Amino acid sequence: QVWVWKEAGTLLALVGAGLLLLGAFELALGLPWLGQLRRSPEPAAAVRGIGGWLALGLTAVLPALTYLPFMKLGALWFPSALFPQWVQNQLLAWALANTVLAIVIALFLRRGRPVFSVDIPRSLVAAVLSVGAVALALAAVDRLLHVDFRFWVIGFRPLTEARWPIFLAYLPLWTLHCVIVVRGLCALLAVDGASRRLTYLTAAGVMGGGFFVLAALQYATLFATGLLLTPTQPLNVIVALQFIPLLALVGIIAVFTWRRTNSYLPGALICALFLSWYVTSGTANHWSAEYPMTFPPAARDR
């Protein structure tokens, strides 16, 4: 029964991968050309008013509240040669729908306009170097020890040669989502005098808290009645468990990079690379030119 120790070891590696990502970004800012990204964060407001707290609440609640309906709707985005992963198509349908909701929230709950420092070339290079450091560490661990960074249903796997085109196809869509969401989050967190610890806790809680409540309700109902709260969508409930730590990490990355650059862009690009890699490497392909998809007669009739 050595699997318990293996699980503990890969959990430590998973935590270490997150620390390596942040540390690599810090080191990247020490390079002469990338050092020009360094800026002190500029607050958007003196205090967080009712509108700011309401926006934070909606940011936490709406992604979890819309998750199952939008995943179900996303099932209509059938796999294809360009986008072959059915589950990732559903996740992107949810992500892009929440991107629209984030824009609507920003328009209706206007507050102090944040002043961000945006440098696209340097932000892109810093993001690639940061995520690349984790990818190299994972490749080494995979080659030498035949394990990866994972715990339970959360796992980072190396991208195989066949999956690189898939990763690149999905990356622009994840980038669009992350740029809008991370910008909105940083704008909400840019409050004068907010402590560093509170800012990190707020970001992690806002991003992952809604899914924590969703999972708690699902499993409380399961233990009480023997059925999930949504018994017809068990796979999507399991998929949702991953969002608790992953989205919390997105919030931490956003704060870490914003506090050092006064920009949402490096963190958004890191998160886009990270999410596209994570989902693409760990999701089944549902399309192949050699095995075209077929549907039951009832589905074809509709």
Rank of each mutant, 00 (worst) to 15 (best):
A127T: 07
L73D: 05
S117N: 11
C178D: 11
L107M: 14
L73W: 12
V131A: 12
P158W: 03
G184Y: 06
L91F: 12
L107K: 07
H177L: 08
L124Q: 04
A169H: 11
P121D: 09
G193W: 01
P63M: 04
H177V: 15
L188V: 06
W77D: 01
V181S: 07
Q85E: 11
T99C: 09
L82K: 06
V191D: 07
R113A: 14
A169V: 06
L188N: 05
L185C: 04
S130D: 07
V87S: 08
Y67H: 10
D148H: 14
D142I: 08
T66P: 00
V100Q: 01
R143D: 12
P172I: 05
G155E: 13
V147R: 09
V134M: 13
S80E: 04
V87N: 08
D119Q: 13
A139H: 12
L82T: 09
L136F: 13
W94G: 04
L124P: 03
T66N: 08
D119P: 00
K72V: 15
A127S: 08
L144D: 12
W86Y: 08
T99N: 02
W94H: 14
A126S: 09
L129D: 07
L73E: 02
D142N: 14
N98M: 10
W164F: 14
G112W: 02
I105P: 05
G193I: 06
V125K: 01
V87H: 08
P84G: 02
A102G: 10
P114W: 04
V141N: 05
N98I: 06
A93C: 14
T99D: 01
L185V: 03
V181D: 10
